[in-house]
Write a protein that binds this DNA or RNA. Sequence first.
DNA 1: AAGTGGTCTAGACCACTAT
DNA 2: TAGTGGTCTAGACCACTTT
Lengths: 250, 250
Amino acid sequence: MENRLYGTIDRKSYEPAYVQLSNILRQQIASGVYRPDDKLPSEAELCRHFEVSPMTVRRVINILSDQGIVSTIQGRGTYVKSFELGNASFQLDTLQQLFKNEKETTLKILEARIASADASIADLLKLKENDRVVFIRRLISNKNEPILYHREYLIYDPNRPLIEAEMEVTSLQGIFSGSGKSGLKCGEISISATLLTDTDAKLLSALPLSAAIRLEHIFYDFNNLPVSWGWFLCPGDRLEFKAKIGVTDQ
Amino acid sequence: MENRLYGTIDRKSYEPAYVQLSNILRQQIASGVYRPDDKLPSEAELCRHFEVSPMTVRRVINILSDQGIVSTIQGRGTYVKSFELGNASFQLDTLQQLFKNEKETTLKILEARIASADASIADLLKLKENDRVVFIRRLISNKNEPILYHREYLIYDPNRPLIEAEMEVTSLQGIFSGSGKSGLKCGEISISATLLTDTDAKLLSALPLSAAIRLEHIFYDFNNLPVSWGWFLCPGDRLEFKAKIGVTDQ
DNA sequence: AAGTGGTCTAGACCACTAT
DNA sequence: TAGTGGTCTAGACCACTTT
């Protein structure tokens, strides 16, 4: 094959060799030196040209493979992938970043009380009907514009002081850190679209009959028991979740 | 420290040592042997106990770190992380899977014609106003229920036969593979909530004034020029994007 | 000084694919 | 048989943190 290898690794750089090499290859793919379905040079060739050990090249290929940029076939070679829509991933850290500017983001507890579980909540939290639950409503605003409205049902734990601690919460993490003193292990979140009710729209200073993103969540403790169920509402125009896809030459 | 290490690696297993070890550690974390903020045994200890080389242990720690389960601090140790909401990621492969059952999923081209770009489209696709673009409307249905309505504006390329090839497309990938014969390099996608217009609602057999997920996309070729801009609409109740978060003991 | 994570080497052996 | 990716070793050296 013709030699399309170029670039060298600066051993004096603070950047590790594997970072440099993966950047070199990613840029060559992004700039079209290697096109989708092209075969990359073999690992042995990469070792020789860039004067690194097999393990280092292996690491680089794994990184590119994890990023969905190349795929490997044992015995055949490493090939450039064309991007797939399904690889796009939306990160919730957009939400998290709301809380970075603490002074601009405020969290207000609208309501916090002990209630009794109706059939659907009992089912979700694996309780009996009429068992006690904690019901909390929160409003999160940025620069005095309400952005998120959160409703949550928590397993009631008489040993846990609940409301006081919540008042100071200024991070999204903090909202849930109080839930269940044994700690949360995992959870599921789903995203959907919904129509705001009149009362919800008023709370969020949104127009009646406007659309909103709904983020529903359920969290489990280390005994795999549900601890919290609830959902966030966010008016369609106040928050945007973005995803990048494909190779970027940064 | 007390010795909480247990489990062994089966060298005869078809599963590589690094997979076995990362599963062992993940399960111990999931089952509460190591709790959030706990320190894992040092890499040297793991080497000794599981009788593997430092590189193998390193690889395992990197995997767990990539999965957001542990974090490492040089000179101090490896610690179990409590899960962060911001780590949740929604994958679009939910969409992709629609097309897995080819017989149940159909794609209908509602319209495909050459149009002239208005100001906003010219701006997005980096054209001049009134330049020619290809406008396509598609309806994607599952078991005869419409699920996605797609509108797309493509750079017009007189050398490319457009419509014929599109008719046979039965994958989400295929929708875009025709766009720009030089191939697509990357793109951006954003997700938001919107209200369906009356005509859109009719097309999607949805109630008027119902909410929908809107996925807007723009794709670029290897010259970093925009090739395609458009959006999908999906009624709020027909498709759900889910994310898992935290440690799962699978 | 001792312990920790982080990078890297120069090989070995294996499984798979092509010819 | 030769070439490819995949796993793994048994060290080395470095940077950082703790004591």
